[in-house]
Write a protein that binds this DNA or RNA. Structure first.
Lengths: 162, 162
DNA sequence: TATTGTTATACTCTATAACTATA
DNA sequence: TATAGTTATAGAGTATAACAATA
């Protein structure tokens, strides 16, 4: 159990770090919102998934996911196919155009991070990634499942971009 | 210099961790937005500062800061006094009512984090806080000052809440 | 009757630009 | 002329609730 000051400081840091996200968002191509970039990255990482699964991965309401998916589909970045096993569902998959966009986004993000974090040791970047992933997991578990049960996600398909 | 995959993964984690921020935001009292909470926390930490300084600390445009400050001032959570040294400026300071609100917010955040992160070692929480602070600093320096010059903030006045 | 996904509506946060008042 | 701050406007993101189609 950590001290109260640690929890307070963590909450404050999480708020202010949102600025870093905004900065990265400004690097994106004109018609590609941060939401589109994250959405496509998840699709590339997890392969063919349903709307509800994508909403869970993004940790936003399905209504929000639905709008962002529609936007990306209009631009040809992903496909929506009816699920033969359940006609209420639609299976989402990234298209080659979506993958090309993701490569561009990844290149821009990488260049920016390489510039800003040029003084960072690799180990620190790895540690930060690991801790953020665990933070999200600790919260996600509590949100979805009030129980103590451990929760294993399916393994990603590809090593994925941004 | 880290590998491209690391930068991509970091960008993705930063996006998805936004969900944790939203979760924390939902814990706040009805009339206290996340923006108010962060703003008051910064005021408590840095003492009496100007609008422009607060905007820099929050890493948002001054127009945004101005609106959030006006909201908090209407509710008596902070004071705005004309700066005798420069009549264009206004000096901001948190009020006792603001500090009381911050204590309440801090209690809720702490309780939630203590629950969700109950399995985390203290050291990991400390490491995450440190890395997030450095991340923000690396970006903030690049945003404000394109040079290599190191940048020393004034020391905070109090150990502060949330 | 419950679930998957869509759409309408409203609210929050943000940036840009035009404005004021001081410097 | 430049700077500190305010306000108006517009755009992106999100949640809630009502709805359609299917299980």
């Amino acid at each position: 159990m950590a001290a109260q000051e640690q929890y307070e400081e963590l909450a404050r840091q999480l708020s202010v770090v949102a600025a870093v996200r905004r900065d990265l968002g400004r690097l994106l191509p004109h018609d590609c919102s941060p939401a589109s970039a994250v959405l496509l990255a998840q699709l590339q990482q997890y392969g063919e998934i349903r709307m509800s699964k994508l909403a869970e991965l993004l940790a936003v309401d399905m209504s929000v996911t639905s709008r962002h998916v529609a936007y990306a589909a209009e631009r040809g970045w992903l496909d929506r196919q009816a699920d033969p096993a359940d006609k209420r569902s639609r299976l989402l998959r990234i298209t080659p155009a979506g993958e090309a966009l993701l490569r561009e986004v990844s290149a821009r993000y990488t260049q920016a991070l390489a510039t800003f974090l040029k003084d960072w040791p690799d180990d620190d970047i790895g540690r930060l990634i690991d801790l953020l992933a665990r933070l999200r997991e600790s919260f996600g578990d509590c949100r979805a499942r009030p129980s103590h049960q451990t929760h294993h996600e399916e393994a990603p398909q590809a090593s994925a971009a941004v």
